[in-house]
Structures are given as structure tokens and as C-alpha cells.
């Protein structure tokens, strides 16, 4: 473990809290994108470049674009609504940073013993082998999920056009 591990982890926790407590939805989406980027760096450090590239391009890129698109279509608050929301937000989210710090200290100093043991290391360590040759049935599930997603998006946008 190096200093960089600690820096990355603390930044990740910090930006998670940032994404949770900020009032502006755009800033929340920005915080989420930064969490994705930090996760990508950790994946590269753990020698998982393929997953890291997926995380960077899809989670930090595509999902952020989806969020920004959705936020751009939402309505801006009036001055009165803004003040009301501000008051409620302080009550709701003010306690979160304290919860996170307290929980972090408790969990870290608890140091519960690990209750599992690693299985014998006989697995193939080439991701291409695992991804393409060792999976059979779950590829069908994955394809169904992708098709369901595409179908869902097409139906939603089609309905939107028809209503307009």
C-alpha cells in the first residue's frame, strides 16, 4: 500500500459525499464522474486495464452524458422554491459527512477478521479466455439485457415523439 492508495481512497469517499450533498444536479453528476475516474485509476493499479477502459468510457463518459441530458430537460426552481429546497437540504444532508467519518473510523478500527479464505488459484488469468471462452449461458442473459435496454429506450423516445 502506498500513499497514492490512501489519496485515491480518500478522494473517492470525498467525491461520493460531494455527489450526495450538492444541491446542483450538474455538480452531483460531475462528482459521480470523478468517482468513476478515480475507480478507473484504481483498476489500472490493480492490473485490470480492460475493465478500467470500460469504466472510463462507459461510466465516466456515457452515463455522465445521460445524466447531463436528463438534467438539461428538467425545470429550474423559482426563487421561493429554491429557498425552501435549501432549508430542507441542510436538514437532510447536513448529517451525512459526520455519518461517513464516524462510520469510517468505526469500521477501520474494528478490524474484524476476514471470515473467508481464498479458493485455490487454478483460474485462468487471461481475461480474454474468461470473457470469451469460459462463459456460455450468461452471454445470452447479457444479450437479453442489452436488447431490453435498447428496446426500452426506443419505446420511451418513440412515445415522446408521438406525444409531441
Amino acid at each position: 500500500m502506498t500513499m497514492l492508495d490512501y489519496v485515491l481512497l480518500f478522494m473517492m469517499a470525498g467525491f461520493s459525499v460531494f455527489a450526495a450533498v450538492r444541491r446542483s444536479l450538474l455538480q452531483c453528476a460531475f462528482g459521480l464522474a470523478v468517482v468513476s475516474i478515480l475507480l478507473t485509476i484504481m483498476m489500472f493499479r490493480f492490473n485490470a486495464p480492460l475493465a478500467a477502459v470500460f469504466e472510463l468510457s462507459v461510466c465516466a463518459g456515457l452515463i455522465t452524458v445521460i445524466f447531463v441530458y436528463a438534467i438539461s430537460l428538467s425545470r429550474v426552481h423559482t426563487q421561493e422554491e429554491e429557498q425552501q429546497a435549501d432549508h430542507e437540504r441542510k436538514l437532510r444532508y447536513g448529517v451525512l459527512p459526520y455519518i461517513i467519518v464516524a462510520a469510517g473510523l468505526v469500521i477501520y478500527f474494528l478490524q474484524a477478521p476476514l471470515i473467508f479464505t481464498a479458493p485455490p488459484s487454478q483460474a485462468v488469468n487471461d481475461v480474454r479466455e474468461v470473457l470469451w471462452n469460459q462463459r456460455l449461458f450468461d452471454i445470452i442473459g447479457l444479450l437479453l439485457v442489452i436488447m431490453a435496454g435498447v428496446f426500452g429506450v426506443v419505446v420511451l423516445f418513440k412515445e415522446k415523439d408521438a406525444n409531441e
Binding site: A51, A118, S121, V127, V130
Partner: peptide, 15 residues
């Protein structure tokens, strides 16, 4: 646990 390839495949599914 030394199963980084399996973890990567699982993460790609998850994403």
C-alpha cells in the same frame, strides 16, 4: 485472491 481476470469479466458484465 489472484483471480483478476474473472473479476474483470464480471465487472464488464456489471457495467
Amino acid at each position: 485472491t489472484g483471480h483478476i481476470a474473472t473479476a474483470q469479466a464480471l465487472i464488464i458484465n456489471l457495467i
